[in-house]
Design a protein around this nucleic acid. Structure first.
Lengths: 160, 160
DNA sequence: CAAAAGAGTTACCTAAGGCTAATATATGAA
DNA sequence: TTCATATATTAGCCTTAGGTAACTCTTTTG
């Protein structure tokens, strides 16, 4: 592990370190994940659809899609359809799986109303190690359903 | 709950929404939490100390401390000592408790090397609801130590 | 008490990722 | 085929939060 990984950093500081390694900003991840979700079913997606799905304005989408194209993750030319490259498909799938993993986990421990938002906020910056821990823990909980049953009971008994 | 809270947003989109509500950016939270940690013991902290603790350059600290002063969270005047106001102390404590809560939880499920980084990345954006869920779950795990013992066993049996 | 060292500030640069306004392209209907 | 509408792009602005270089203030020390 890098030396600087062991020191404290600000939120922004960690983002910068991560980005140096992956060349994918949180924003690009957001877009790529959504493109993947949509292209899985439809094969392509349009700028305006993305802008609705992501709740941002079209110019923000254009710019980010252009960046993803430069990075070789989507095929896109002006006024055309947004499609994934093989590499984009591969990474998009990883991003979506990560999203689902975190969402499942938060759901298990009782997050409801803010599930989407919390998942979104956590997924882009979490480490591989933490992700693996969550995955293991998820599996453990699935294989031992009495634990979450006990948790529900525990919450009820404390008037939650 | 606000209507826009139920739609998808990008990472940046959620940050903006959150900030509209709290008037504290992730950066300001980082700094305030560290100021609180240090002032608890020493009563004050200097710009250069903060820059070392946070691993950023002094000018970044000056600017953020000035902003925190504008927001009434710290007492600071040029070339002076950084001290917390009552309000800053109150919020700093909440931030530190939140940090510890998340760190404890991640530690319980097995995060080690990246514990600090993961905690930092999660803490600034997590919802109150998710935080409460984690808190409950933490307590449940503490009151039922066999669960985490079982988890250790589970991991070992799968060669982790 | 003057000079050097240390601490802090200012001015300015960069990048990401929002936004709006204005412009350009594509498409479907008369 | 032309024109209206829908779609997309460009240009330019804003904020946050990093950075450096150069300058100023404060403190310490010979």
């Amino acid at each position: 592990m890098d030396k600087k990984d062991r020191q404290f950093h600000t939120f922004r500081g960690y983002q910068i370190i991560k980005q140096e390694k992956t060349r994918l900003t949180p924003g690009m991840e957001d877009y790529l994940e959504m493109i993947y979700r949509h292209c899985r079913n439809e094969g392509y997606v349009r700028i305006v659809q993305l802008s609705e799905l992501l709740n941002v304005q079209a110019p923000s989408v254009t710019r980010t899609v252009q960046r993803l194209a430069e990075s070789g993750l989507v095929d896109y030319e002006k006024y055309g359809l947004v499609k994934l490259t093989e590499e984009g498909e591969r990474i998009g799938q990883i991003l979506l799986e990560r999203h689902i993993l975190i969402e499942n986990f938060l759901g298990k421990i009782g997050v409801r109303d803010t599930l989407l938002r919390d998942t979104e906020m956590i997924e882009h910056n979490i480490s591989v190690e933490a992700l693996r821990s969550i995955e293991f823990f998820n599996n453990y909980l699935d294989d031992n359903p009495h634990i979450l049953k006990g948790f529900e009971e525990y919450k009820r008994s404390r008037g939650c």
